[in-house]
């Protein structure tokens, strides 16, 4: 990759189909392998993004995921037009969840999504407005 050259990739996350949630993260994982990133970084990016995708499907009827890559940083931006997060500090606590029981029956909604995204990334920024939507930026340092 040439210096300062930024690559970008766009993915739509379908909110109507829980089965397909995570498809974009699988694509990102493949892309990062092809671009030669380390398995450890690739894994961290894919897991954090997968949690974000699941959240968008559970809470926000889908959204978009954009990936920006340069030689120093991998940046993932997840954006939705869902209900927004009322209390971000509460949502960041492990175990806090507003997911319905049918989602728990599918193996998610344990209140680990946002904490996981924070733990696996180097920086996480949440911009959320109730009734408007949520945008989450995840940054991962390369190397």
């Amino acid at each position: 990759m040439a210096a300062n050259e930024e690559l970008s990739f766009h993915f739509d996350v379908d909110g109507n189909d829980f089965t397909s949630a995570g498809e974009a993260s699988v694509k990102v994982k493949k892309l990062m392998r092809q671009l030669g990133f380390s398995p450890e970084l690739t894994r961290r990016v894919a897991i954090a993004m997968y949690e974000g995708e699941i959240n968008m499907v559970i809470h926000a009827n889908g959204g978009t995921a954009d990936m920006y890559v340069d030689e120093d940083m991998v940046r993932i931006v997840l954006a939705d037009h869902g209900p927004g997060i009322k209390d971000i500090a509460a949502a960041m606590q492990e175990g806090f969840s507003t997911a319905p029981d049918n989602i728990r029956a599918l193996g998610f909604g344990a209140g680990m999504g946002l904490p996981n995204m924070k733990n696996y990334s180097d920086e996480m920024n949440i911009d959320s407005t109730v009734g408007v939507g949520t945008t989450i930026e995840l940054k991962f340092k390369v190397g």
């Binding site: 089965t19 699941i54 193996g107 733990n119």
Partner: peptide, 25 residues
């Protein structure tokens, strides 16, 4: 699966009674 995503480090094997495609993902 939320717990698997949170706590698994290098375990190569998943045992589960959950049955949906997100287990594979």
């Amino acid at each position: 699966m939320s717990d698997v995503l949170a706590f698994v480090k290098h375990q190569g094997l998943l045992l589960t009674g959950l049955m949906n495609p997100q287990v594979i993902r």
